[in-house]
Design a protein around this nucleic acid. Structure first.
Lengths: 161, 161
DNA sequence: TTATTATGGACACTACAGGTCTATAATAAT
DNA sequence: ATTATTATAGACCTGTAGTGTCCATAATAA
């Protein structure tokens, strides 16, 4: 259970864009060399970020990528969900087993049965709680918050050239 | 990014053991049929749980598995770490890239340099925070807490026979 | 001694992460 | 218009981890 390298690259790429001068898009060459990763692979990741609306891209001479929202509006959760997908952290298999008949909440068979169509396992319930906590934390951390932290510690090297 | 099926099976198996009569170990046959999974695969998982000290196993006639601690002392985190391993949720690659020289905390190069040998990236820092939060939540939920919840909802079917 | 049960190793299959390469499309500069 | 540049999409490859089966062996109780 680990986040993929792609998530790593995506986060660092967005940080680089966020740290760059506004209205000055940066190409895949610069991005790749800064992160220490191949252009071909990184461009795959950037495409994904574009498809989900986190960055804009313009081809052609002096083209490149730029953030499509402000750095405060791009959370860690956004980035992670784009790269890792939005499936649940945990899903029971064998939901028709004897275990699940025991552990599923009985009241869903009661009057508010139609509220949630599926009969939820208590294990699943705990894990969904975990996921919600995790998401909340990741929503509270943005590209900007990391940049703030970096500047606070005295790394004042912006990318102006 | 998902927990494996093995973790699913392990959690449900331990719940079954926890719900069973004390001092009465249950065999792989019963366990597997209750969970709706093959005996061969489940036994692999049970072995892992045994190696890490969560259950005891006795071979031979009327053998089987039993919890080696009380249900309050087995947390979700315990189970997950046995099955998924104990690697970090996130680890930066290319820690020698230009990005990391920018994002690593400068003060670690200061007087307390030897406190933590490695120069930590701020992205990594955020993700470790996330992991800590997740772990804390998972530590607060135990086999017993799920059983309590189940009984509260009126599933009073214990496994006495 | 025997039947039963867990254990460990070998093996197979599949999916996916990680990565490269090439052809194509879009854009700006000339 | 042409050309150089840059992003995009697709095909393709590789290794590894998850999921699972099967069999031989060891340990134990009856």
């Amino acid at each position: 259970m680990q986040f993929s390298k792609s998530t790593d690259y995506a986060l660092h790429a967005l940080l680089h864009l966020g740290n760059s001068e506004r209205c000055n898009n940066v190409g895949i060459k610069e991005l790749a060399s800064t992160l220490g990763v191949s252009e071909s692979y990184l461009s795959k990741i950037m495409s994904k970020l574009r498809q989900d609306g986190l960055v804009r891209a313009v081809p052609g001479v002096n083209g490149g990528y730029e953030l499509s929202r402000s750095t405060e509006q791009i959370t860690f959760l956004d980035v992670i969900q784009v790269i890792e997908g939005r499936q649940k952290l945990f899903e029971c298999s064998n939901t028709d087993s004897q275990q699940h008949r025991l552990l599923a909440e009985e009241e869903t068979a009661g009057r508010d049965q139609e509220r949630s169509g599926k009969c939820e396992c208590l294990v699943q319930k705990v894990m969904e709680g975990a996921e919600q906590h995790l998401h909340q934390y990741l929503r509270e951390h943005t590209i900007q918050s990391v940049l703030d932290e970096a500047f606070k510690h005295g790394n004042h090297e912006t990318n102006k050239k």
